[in-house]
Amino acid sequence: MKQVDEKYYDLLLEIQQTDFVILELNLYLNTHPNDQAAIVQYNEYVQRSMQLKKNFESIYGPLTSFGYSYSPTPWKWGKSPWPWQI
């Protein structure tokens, strides 16, 4: 398995935590669709997640494939450890 630095794990953990909040807010909003404060919070976390993923991918390469992440040339999907490998 490829070795990665500590920052890799820190960024990945922050992405996972942020996406967990998004999931929980999504479930809450399914039953409380008019809660404006929750919608604002949801949108803030979505924006944060997108920025974290963009930052992570600029340093370590794609997090996902199948159209969710851009790839520079050359193709980088197989160059870094995949999230499930660490």
Rank of each mutant, 00 (worst) to 15 (best):
P83R: 14
K79T: 15
Y70K: 13
L12S: 01
Y8N: 03
G78F: 13
P33K: 10
E14F: 03
Q41P: 07
F66Q: 06
W75G: 03
Q47S: 08
W82D: 12
K2E: 09
F56G: 00
E14G: 02
T73F: 15
N26W: 15
E44R: 14
V21P: 01
L13E: 14
H32Y: 11
P83D: 08
S80L: 04
L13S: 11
L63P: 00
S80D: 07
E14S: 04
P72D: 15
Y70D: 10
K2N: 08
F20D: 11
V4D: 02
L63W: 00
Q85R: 14
T31G: 14
N55K: 08
L23T: 11
K54Q: 04
F66K: 09
N43S: 01
P81C: 10
S80H: 08
D19K: 07
K7S: 07
N34I: 10
K2V: 05
Y8A: 03
M50K: 10
K7L: 07
M50T: 05
E44S: 10
Q17M: 10
Y60E: 00
Q51A: 08
F20R: 13
Y28A: 04
V4W: 01
Q3A: 04
W84D: 13
D19V: 03
S49M: 01
N26A: 12
F20Y: 12
A38P: 02
N26L: 13
D5V: 12
F56N: 00
Q47A: 10
E24H: 11
S65F: 03
W82G: 08
Y70M: 12
Y8E: 05
L52W: 01
G61E: 00
V40C: 09
